[in-house]
Amino acid sequence: MRAKLPRLVVTFSTTAAAMEMERYCQANGISGRLIPTPREITADCGLAWSAPSEAESAVLQAANNGCIEYAAVYHLVI
């Protein structure tokens, strides 16, 4: 099993927004990856953006710059 680390997890209300987030972040060199939304979180969409905790401001800035609406921001050990 992978070691669990503290991560930033951003959820979305639609699958389309989560996929747009991946496109935008990959195109702009923002760290993180799309993961299935962890089960401890209830979200409308089953995909979430996970990034190192310290990348929070860069990730949220990216969402704002890309006009991607996110639902909630969590810090989890996953």
Binding site: T15, A16, C45, G46, L47
Partner: peptide
């Protein structure tokens, strides 16, 4: 049924 998929297709 996969929830992500229902959401993607607008079938939630």
């Amino acid at each position: 049924t996969c929830g992500t998929c229902l959401n993607y297709y607008g079938l939630t």
